[in-house]
Amino acid sequence: MKCPYPHVYGVYGIALHSEIPLPLPLHEHGELAQMELQTAPASFFSDAIRGIRLQQVWGSWYEFGRLADRSSYARWRTVGEFLVFGDGRRIVCRPFDIATAESFYVYLLAQALSFALVKSGFEPFHATVVVVNGNGVVFLGDSGFGKSSLAACFLDAGHQMLTDDLLLLQVCSSRVLAYPGPPRIKLFAKTAHRFLGDALAGVRMNPETEKLIFPLDARRSCFSPVPVKAIYSLAGPGEVVRKDQIRSEPLSPRQSFLELVKNTFNRRILDADRLERQLHEAARLVSLVPVRKLWFPRVWSQLPSVRDAIICDLQQVLEPDICGG
């Protein structure tokens, strides 16, 4: 593919040909797809959405519109605006003046890119993945369920982060591979201080949250796809009280399926083709990877115990032959 853009990055297994520099590793080998990223002035976007009625979730600062040519437009009021072409091959973006670069990259490389991924036939999930002994351990759950805090606790013990927020999985020879996302993690300052130390500086993600974006160095990031060992669906904070024990249980295939479907990324594209693909993709994953539900009290001091319980779980429950369990 001949491409006029000066940068080629690798993210989620995609070769991203970009007009602008991004905080991503350079693309090195193999790819699931190729996409292009370019910038455009405000007039390009205002022309594109002229006559389009944008949808907005009540109370949200996010607006979305679908154009007649199947392109999707999205903007976050203090971050920037994005147009994703109908075939998912090209993203046009514009950061707003008040946006920090870090904040813009977060929305570009997760929310905006999710439109391109779905339009390209992929099914991204809302998940955080850490790498334990070369295998991916996936945490599913709504925002605020503790995916990133738990991942930070794994980083503290020397494990690596694969992705935080958006996950792309691909079935390869009956294995499920998880692909690396941008090398960063989103955490509240206190959690970052506790698990990552004081040396890292974070940048606020957006004015609506206290969460900060922390870049991760090569020691803490995994840049290659890894096979998925297990998927943990985190019980919500409301399902657990402080004195509860840490426990995990296997989910039935149907429950596993529903957890995966519940945690698909991008709920704006809901045409029948996408929904049908989503169903088949989730059903296929359930047949290949164990999905467990994890309950743990939301107490910082207990997170290392949660981490240890997961590692023990991976060895004893999921590999009983090796451990004699």
Binding site: S252, R254, E276, L279, H280
Partner: peptide, 14 residues
Amino acid sequence: VSCDFGGEAAILNL
């Protein structure tokens, strides 16, 4: 569309 999980079905109304 639907799929079967060991005797339990999930149906998606498109």
